[in-house]
Amino acid sequence: MIPMEHYLIVSSIMFFVGLYGFLSRKNLLAILISIELILNSVEINFSVFNRYLFPEHMEGMFFSLFGIAISAAETAVAIAIIINVYRVTQEIDVRHIDKMKY
């Protein structure tokens, strides 16, 4: 059986890759994909902890299913926002979208 640490290493790598992408990418879509990576790493953690530590319970599994549903909805909303931002500013470079401070 694969030890739990391996899963956690994979999910940590995914989390920090996602974090790095979220901070460094300038394209809104790339940022969105990075957020998906962060979310998925969290969901892996949920599943792994559930499976290895509390095998007789199912809460972790359901929580990751919940997370998948939420991330799907969030992606839909985010893409809608990005499309609208694009319609207004004709670009999706995050450096130029700084109207939020006003």
Binding site: L23, S24, V94, D98, M100, K101, Y102
Partner: peptide, 9 residues
């Protein structure tokens, strides 16, 4: 507060 979301993050 420069309006860049990534800086905030």
């Amino acid at each position: 507060q420069n309006g860049r979301v990534q800086a905030y993050a």
